[in-house]
Protein backbone atom coordinates (compact mmCIF):
# COMPACT_ATOMS: atom_id res chain seq x y z
CA UNK A 1 0.00 0.00 0.00
CA UNK A 2 1.35 3.41 -0.92
CA UNK A 3 2.04 5.83 1.91
CA UNK A 4 1.93 9.58 1.41
CA UNK A 5 5.38 10.80 0.51
CA UNK A 6 6.47 7.45 -0.87
CA UNK A 7 6.93 7.14 -4.61
CA UNK A 8 3.84 5.88 -6.41
CA UNK A 9 3.76 2.39 -7.89
CA UNK A 10 3.96 3.89 -11.36
CA UNK A 11 7.11 5.84 -10.36
CA UNK A 12 8.75 2.76 -8.89
CA UNK A 13 7.88 0.68 -11.95
CA UNK A 14 9.42 3.36 -14.15
CA UNK A 15 12.60 3.31 -12.04
CA UNK A 16 12.89 -0.47 -12.28
CA UNK A 17 12.30 -0.43 -16.02
CA UNK A 18 14.99 2.22 -16.43
CA UNK A 19 17.54 -0.05 -14.78
CA UNK A 20 17.21 0.58 -11.03
CA UNK A 21 16.55 -3.07 -10.16
CA UNK A 22 16.92 -2.45 -6.42
CA UNK A 23 13.77 -0.32 -6.52
CA UNK A 24 11.78 -3.50 -7.04
CA UNK A 25 12.38 -4.18 -3.34
CA UNK A 26 10.07 -1.23 -2.57
CA UNK A 27 7.23 -2.95 -4.37
CA UNK A 28 7.92 -6.21 -2.58
CA UNK A 29 7.89 -4.51 0.81
CA UNK A 30 4.70 -2.69 -0.14
CA UNK A 31 2.69 -5.75 -1.13
CA UNK A 32 4.42 -8.78 0.34
CA UNK A 33 2.34 -9.00 3.53
CA UNK A 34 -1.03 -8.89 1.80
CA UNK A 35 -0.04 -11.28 -0.96
CA UNK A 36 1.50 -13.71 1.52
CA UNK A 37 -1.65 -13.63 3.64
CA UNK A 38 -3.88 -14.17 0.60
CA UNK A 39 -1.76 -17.06 -0.71
CA UNK A 40 -1.54 -18.66 2.74
CA UNK A 41 -5.31 -18.57 3.18
CA UNK A 42 -5.80 -19.90 -0.34
CA UNK A 43 -3.29 -22.74 -0.07
CA UNK A 44 -3.46 -23.54 3.63
CA UNK A 45 0.31 -23.80 3.86
CA UNK A 46 2.56 -20.88 4.72
CA UNK A 47 5.71 -22.34 3.16
CA UNK A 48 4.00 -23.22 -0.12
CA UNK A 49 2.40 -19.77 -0.08
CA UNK A 50 5.82 -18.12 0.39
CA UNK A 51 7.08 -20.07 -2.63
CA UNK A 52 4.07 -18.98 -4.66
CA UNK A 53 4.51 -15.33 -3.70
CA UNK A 54 8.26 -15.36 -4.36
CA UNK A 55 7.72 -16.98 -7.77
CA UNK A 56 4.99 -14.46 -8.52
CA UNK A 57 7.25 -11.50 -7.71
CA UNK A 58 9.98 -12.94 -9.94
CA UNK A 59 7.44 -13.39 -12.69
CA UNK A 60 6.18 -9.85 -12.14
CA UNK A 61 9.74 -8.54 -12.34
CA UNK A 62 10.37 -10.39 -15.59
CA UNK A 63 7.19 -9.11 -17.16
CA UNK A 64 7.09 -5.68 -15.56
CA UNK A 65 7.26 -3.98 -18.93
CA UNK A 66 4.02 -5.72 -19.88
CA UNK A 67 2.15 -4.24 -16.91
CA UNK A 68 -0.04 -1.92 -18.91
CA UNK A 69 -1.29 0.10 -15.98
CA UNK A 70 1.46 0.47 -13.37
CA UNK A 71 -0.93 2.54 -11.26
CA UNK A 72 -2.95 -0.65 -10.82
CA UNK A 73 0.04 -2.74 -9.92
CA UNK A 74 -1.63 -4.09 -6.79
CA UNK A 75 -4.42 -5.85 -8.68
CA UNK A 76 -1.89 -7.06 -11.27
CA UNK A 77 0.18 -8.67 -8.51
CA UNK A 78 -2.91 -10.23 -6.93
CA UNK A 79 -3.81 -11.63 -10.33
CA UNK A 80 -0.38 -13.26 -10.72
CA UNK A 81 -0.50 -14.71 -7.19
CA UNK A 82 -4.11 -15.89 -7.66
CA UNK A 83 -3.12 -17.69 -10.85
CA UNK A 84 -0.11 -19.19 -9.13
CA UNK A 85 -2.34 -20.45 -6.33
CA UNK A 86 -4.69 -21.99 -8.87
CA UNK A 87 -1.78 -23.81 -10.49
CA UNK A 88 -0.66 -25.15 -7.11
CA UNK A 89 -4.17 -26.25 -6.22
CA UNK A 90 -4.67 -27.93 -9.57
CA UNK A 91 -1.36 -29.77 -9.23
CA UNK A 92 -2.17 -30.87 -5.74
CA UNK A 93 -5.78 -31.77 -6.63
CA UNK A 94 -6.87 -30.25 -3.38
CA UNK A 95 -9.20 -27.53 -4.52
CA UNK A 96 -12.29 -28.87 -2.78
CA UNK A 97 -10.89 -30.83 0.12
CA UNK A 98 -9.77 -29.59 3.52
CA UNK A 99 -6.35 -27.99 3.19
CA UNK A 100 -5.01 -28.51 6.63
CA UNK A 101 -6.70 -30.22 9.53
CA UNK A 102 -3.80 -29.70 11.86
CA UNK A 103 -3.95 -26.66 14.12
CA UNK A 104 -0.98 -24.31 13.92
CA UNK A 105 1.97 -25.25 16.05
CA UNK A 106 1.95 -23.02 19.10
CA UNK A 107 5.08 -21.43 20.37
CA UNK A 108 5.55 -22.46 24.02
CA UNK A 109 6.34 -18.85 24.85
CA UNK A 110 2.94 -17.73 23.57
CA UNK A 111 0.59 -16.34 26.14
CA UNK A 112 -2.98 -17.46 26.60
CA UNK A 113 -4.44 -14.76 24.38
CA UNK A 114 -2.09 -15.66 21.53
CA UNK A 115 -2.99 -19.32 21.86
CA UNK A 116 -6.66 -18.45 21.75
CA UNK A 117 -6.10 -16.38 18.60
CA UNK A 118 -4.24 -19.29 17.03
CA UNK A 119 -7.12 -21.63 17.84
CA UNK A 120 -9.66 -19.20 16.40
CA UNK A 121 -7.59 -18.89 13.25
CA UNK A 122 -7.32 -22.66 12.93
CA UNK A 123 -11.08 -22.96 13.33
CA UNK A 124 -11.82 -20.39 10.64
CA UNK A 125 -9.14 -21.77 8.32
CA UNK A 126 -10.69 -25.23 8.57
CA UNK A 127 -14.08 -23.78 7.69
CA UNK A 128 -12.59 -21.79 4.82
CA UNK A 129 -10.82 -24.88 3.51
CA UNK A 130 -14.19 -26.53 3.00
CA UNK A 131 -15.11 -23.95 0.39
CA UNK A 132 -14.41 -24.56 -3.28
CA UNK A 133 -11.33 -22.62 -4.34
CA UNK A 134 -13.33 -20.08 -6.39
CA UNK A 135 -15.51 -19.22 -3.41
CA UNK A 136 -12.51 -19.14 -1.11
CA UNK A 137 -10.78 -16.73 -3.47
CA UNK A 138 -13.88 -14.53 -3.73
CA UNK A 139 -14.34 -14.30 0.04
CA UNK A 140 -10.67 -13.56 0.68
CA UNK A 141 -10.39 -10.89 -2.01
CA UNK A 142 -13.60 -9.17 -0.92
CA UNK A 143 -13.58 -9.43 2.85
CA UNK A 144 -9.95 -10.01 3.83
CA UNK A 145 -7.97 -8.11 1.20
CA UNK A 146 -10.68 -5.45 0.86
CA UNK A 147 -10.78 -5.31 -2.93
CA UNK A 148 -13.71 -3.69 -4.71
CA UNK A 149 -15.73 -5.78 -7.15
CA UNK A 150 -14.07 -3.86 -9.97
CA UNK A 151 -10.62 -4.77 -8.65
CA UNK A 152 -11.73 -8.36 -8.15
CA UNK A 153 -12.81 -8.45 -11.78
CA UNK A 154 -9.32 -7.30 -12.79
CA UNK A 155 -7.74 -10.00 -10.60
CA UNK A 156 -9.94 -12.91 -11.60
CA UNK A 157 -10.98 -11.99 -15.12
CA UNK A 158 -14.61 -12.64 -14.17
CA UNK A 159 -17.59 -10.32 -14.64
CA UNK A 160 -18.80 -8.31 -11.65
CA UNK A 161 -22.27 -9.98 -11.41
CA UNK A 162 -20.55 -13.39 -11.39
CA UNK A 163 -18.25 -12.25 -8.60
CA UNK A 164 -21.13 -10.84 -6.55
CA UNK A 165 -22.95 -14.14 -6.80
CA UNK A 166 -19.74 -15.98 -5.90
CA UNK A 167 -19.21 -13.82 -2.80
CA UNK A 168 -22.81 -14.49 -1.73
CA UNK A 169 -22.33 -18.25 -2.15
CA UNK A 170 -19.00 -18.07 -0.31
CA UNK A 171 -20.62 -16.28 2.65
CA UNK A 172 -23.35 -18.92 2.82
CA UNK A 173 -20.88 -21.81 2.61
CA UNK A 174 -18.53 -20.29 5.18
CA UNK A 175 -21.32 -19.50 7.62
CA UNK A 176 -22.62 -23.05 7.31
CA UNK A 177 -19.14 -24.50 7.86
CA UNK A 178 -18.62 -22.28 10.90
CA UNK A 179 -21.98 -23.23 12.37
CA UNK A 180 -21.28 -26.93 11.86
CA UNK A 181 -17.99 -26.57 13.70
CA UNK A 182 -19.50 -24.61 16.58
Amino acid sequence: MEVRGDPSDADVVARVLSGDHEAFGLLIRRYEAGLLRFATRMLGDRDVAADAVAESFIRAYRHLASCREPARLRTWLYRIVANRCKSYLARRRMADVPLDDAPPVADPTDNEAALERAEQLALVERALARLASEKREAFLLKHVEGLSYQEMAAVTGERIPTLKMRVHRAREALLQALEEQA
Binding site: F24, I28, E32, R41, R46, A50, A54, Q120, L121, V144
Partner: peptide, 19 residues
Protein backbone atom coordinates in the same frame (compact mmCIF):
# COMPACT_ATOMS: atom_id res chain seq x y z
CA UNK B 1 -9.27 -13.47 11.97
CA UNK B 2 -8.20 -14.36 8.42
CA UNK B 3 -6.88 -10.82 8.02
CA UNK B 4 -4.25 -11.22 10.71
CA UNK B 5 -0.72 -11.02 9.36
CA UNK B 6 1.06 -14.19 8.36
CA UNK B 7 4.43 -14.50 10.06
CA UNK B 8 7.48 -14.70 7.88
CA UNK B 9 8.46 -17.98 6.35
CA UNK B 10 11.07 -19.81 8.41
CA UNK B 11 13.39 -20.08 5.38
CA UNK B 12 13.82 -16.33 4.97
CA UNK B 13 11.86 -13.37 3.76
CA UNK B 14 10.23 -13.35 0.35
CA UNK B 15 11.98 -10.07 -0.38
CA UNK B 16 15.41 -11.55 0.28
CA UNK B 17 14.69 -14.52 -1.97
CA UNK B 18 13.33 -12.44 -4.83
CA UNK B 19 16.04 -9.80 -4.66
Amino acid sequence: VLGTAVSQWAGGSVEARVM
